[in-house]
C-alpha cells in the first residue's frame, strides 16, 4: 500500500495520481504537514496534481539498490547533506548546554523507544525480528547487568556528570516537539504494519552510524576527537561512545530485516512512507534538544 508521507493516509500501491491529488488538496487547505512535505521534497510552487506524479515516482524509486540503501540515502540527505541538521552541527564539539538539552529530551525518546520496539515484537511472527528487538532493548534500555549498563542509564549518568539531578531530569516534561513526535511514533507503532514500524524507528539509529561518511554524509554525528582529551566529561564520552559503537550494527541489521520483509512492492511503499514521516518527526525532535539547551543556557 502507498501511504501519504505527510499523514500516512492509505492509497493503492503505486497510485501516485491519487496520492498527488491528496497532497495538493490538503496543501490547498494550508495543512502545515502537507505543505511542508511538498516544499521540502517536491516543489514550493503550487502545481496541478498530475505535475507532481513524476516527482513522486522519483521519490519512491529505489533504482538498482534496495530499500536499505534508499533509506540510507534519504537519511543522509536530510541530516548529513549540504546543510546538516543544526543539532548534528552543535554536537560536533558540544557545549555543556547542548549535552544537557540532549539528556532532558532524550530520556523521553528512549522511553517511547521501548514501547515502539515492544509493538514490533508483539506483532511480528518472525523469530529473528524478536531476537533483534530483544538485544536492542537490552542495549538501549534494560542493560546487561552492572558491567554493561544500558544506553538509557549512560544518558542519565551523563546528565549527572553535568550537574543534573536524575530525579529532576526524569520529572521534567518534554518540550512540545518531543511530546508531539513521541505521541505520533506511538500511534505509528500501534497502527502501522510491524515492518514499517521497524523501519520508522531503527532507521533513526543511522544518526550515530559512523559509516555514513563512506556513503556521502558530510560529517559524523560528532567529531570522534571529543572522545579523547577533556573536552567533555567521562560520562558523556561513555554515552556517546556506546551509541557510536552500537548504532552501526543496530541500524544495519534492522535495515537488512526491513529489506528482507518488504520485498513486495506494496509493503515496500508502506515502509518508505512511514520512514519519510518518521524522519520529519525526528528532525523536529532534534530541534527540541537544541531548544532545551537554549533554555538551560539562558
Amino acid at each position: 500500500m502507498t501511504k501519504c508521507p505527510a499523514c500516512l493516509a492509505s492509497f493503492a500501491t503505486a497510485d501516485y495520481v491519487t496520492l498527488a491529488g491528496h497532497l495538493t488538496e490538503r496543501a490547498g487547505e494550508s495543512d502545515p504537514r502537507h505543505v511542508r512535505w511538498l516544499n521540502q521534497n517536491l516543489t514550493r510552487k503550487k502545481t496541478e496534481p498530475e505535475a507532481l506524479v513524476p516527482g513522486l515516482r522519483r521519490v519512491y524509486d529505489i533504482g538498482t539498490g534496495s530499500v536499505k540503501t534508499w533509506i540510507q540515502g534519504k537519511f543522509i540527505a536530510k541530516f548529513f547533506g549540504t546543510q546538516p541538521h543544526p543539532f548534528v552541527v552543535a554536537l560536533q564539539h558540544p557545549t555543556r548546554a547542548t549535552l544537557r538539552g540532549y539528556v532532558v529530551e532524550h530520556q523521553h525518546f528512549l522511553r517511547q523507544w521501548v514501547r515502539s520496539c515492544a509493538f514490533v515484537m508483539a506483532r511480528t511472527d518472525q523469530p529473528k525480528v524478536i531476537l533483534y528487538e530483544l538485544d536492542n532493548l537490552n542495549t538501549e534500555f534494560g542493560g546487561y547487568g552492572p558491567g554493561r549498563v544500558s544506553h538509557y542509564e549512560l544518558l542519565l549518568r551523563m546528565g549527572e556528570s553535568l550537574g543534573m539531578d536524575r530525579s529532576r531530569v526524569l520529572a521534567t516534561p518534554p518540550l512540545p516537539s518531543t511530546r508531539d513526535a513521541i505521541a505520533e511514533w506511538n500511534e505509528i507503532a500501534r497502527r502501522e504494519p510491524w515492518v514499517s514500524v521497524l523501519a520508522a524507528m531503527h532507521s533513526l539509529e543511522l544518526i550515530a552510524n559512523r559509516d555514513l561518511v563512506h556513503q556521502g554524509a558530510s560529517l559524523r554525528y560528532f567529531d570522534p576527537a571529543i572522545l579523547e582529551g577533556s573536552e567533555i566529561t567521562d560520562a558523556a564520552k561513555n554515552f556517546l561512545r556506546e551509541g557510536y559503537e552500537a548504532d552501526v550494527g543496530h541500524s544495519d541489521e534492522a535495515l537488512d530485516l526491513v529489506t528482507e520483509f518488504s520485498a513486495e512492492a506494496g509493503t515496500r511503499e508502506d515502509v518508505q512512507s512511514t520512514f519519510l514521516r518518521s524522519i520529519d518527526l525526528f528532525d523536529d525532535y532534534l530541534l527540541a534538544r537544541l531548544e532545551r539547551a537554549d533554555r538551560l543556557e539562558a
Binding site: G28, E29, H34, V35, L38, N39, R44, K45
Partner: peptide, 13 residues
Amino acid sequence: AGCAICDSTWGDV
C-alpha cells in the same frame, strides 16, 4: 511573491 516567509505558493492563508 509567494508566502512571506518561505516563498511557497501552496496553501491559502
